[in-house]
Nucleic acid binder design. Structure first.
Length: 99
DNA sequence: CCGCTGACTTTCG
DNA sequence: GCGAAAGCCAGCG
């Protein structure tokens, strides 16, 4: 389920763990999503880098290996990352129909 | 079976 | 804006 949701996230947009969890049907299980991502292989095609925490920041220590990788991917997708935080210019992904 | 831990979220002070 | 507490699910000792 989590993977399905990840794959459903359009490029250039990002979603929070809570969003993904909710869409996955496990509302409130944000930690579950995070745990699931941690299990994802390094060569996975899933856009796990589009998943961020509620603070709009990357859930990795700044300067960390995974952090840099995620930022690189995000920028490649067209997402701007400033101050270790997703630029406000990048709208969060929302289900179709939701404002 | 109990308790700790983890890529988290939300509310209260 | 930040720190603390409770809620959430799964894996491990």
């Amino acid at each position: 389920m989590i993977w399905q949701v990840l794959a459903a996230i359009p490029p250039g947009k990002v979603a929070t763990y809570g969003q993904v969890a909710s869409l996955a049907g496990v509302s409130g299980a944000a930690r579950l999503v995070g745990r699931c991502l941690s299990q994802l292989p390094a060569d996975t095609r899933l856009p796990w880098f589009r998943v961020i925490n509620a603070s709009g920041k990357i859930s990795f220590p700044v300067g960390s290996d995974g952090y840099k990788r995620q930022v690189k991917r995000l920028q490649d997708e067209g997402v701007a990352v400033l101050n270790g935080r997703i630029s406000l210019t990048t709208f969060r992904w929302q289900p179709d129909g939701a404002c």
